[in-house]
Nucleic acid binder design. Sequence first.
DNA 1: ATAGGCGCCTGCTGGC
DNA 2: TGCCAGCAGGCGCCTA
Length: 275
Amino acid sequence: MPELPEVETVVRDLRPLVIGRTIATLRFSKHRLRRQGPRARMKLLRGTSVESISRRGKWIVLALDNGARLVVHLGMTGQLKVMNVAKPVESHTHLLIDFEGGDSQLRFRDIRRFGSLTAFGDEAAVQEFFRAAGLGPEPFELQREYWRGQLGKTRRCMKAVLLDQRVVAGVGNIYADESLFQARIHPTRIGREVRASEAESLRKAIVRVLRRAIDHRGSSIRDYVGGSGLRGRFQDEFCVYGRTGKACIRCRSEVQCIRLAGRATHFCGNCQKEG
DNA sequence: ATAGGCGCCTGCTGGC
DNA sequence: TGCCAGCAGGCGCCTA
């Protein structure tokens, strides 16, 4: 579900609501998440105050003043939001963080439990975790030569390359399809057969699409809400994603949908030529 | 190296 | 109306 723009929106929403707050208690649901660090290490967070909240790819990092970190991934249906303690706790809420002297609490909710919550002792441990995962560069910091090199050395199709978090961090199914449409590149094109000029227009398209999506607070299709519970609006701006059978906004031919890299892939067969 | 399939979960939709 | 297959913003693991 949440890709970079949604995660960025959550982080921006939460920033004024959690920075400076001191964590009083952490309460977990009885269900385990798909991936979750040792529950015992969560003790590191108690009694500390939040210094910052940031994003790396689709990961959210809460930095505490004792150096500890809480790293959150929203998976497909994760929500991280601050709510008034008086609000009923919704089903599938897996972590409640109460702050000292306040009437609001941070809640992690995840219907499908594909998300993850992990505590780390310090920033170095977080960086090592990302390094071990091979997490690639942020899309906004993609170097032209690096990008060309990554495309040039692979026989995978472009859709698969864009979804690979080791190549570029933060792009998911929606923004992969939208970026390829903007750059007029067919999703089945092979990485190393993409021309340098195409690679460059794709690099720019990714940045443009992600920035616009962030401006719209991301895309809400079903579950996603920002850190204050507000939905996104970028779903109204989709050119191809979820528009199967509808007219391409550019040439009016039918938007097609195929399965690639195990995911529904939307494109215009007329605007995006096969190799 | 890479494609494909499965598994992890729950909930919703569309076709019969 | 009811049932059930199929599908969903992710990702790791396995096999061929």
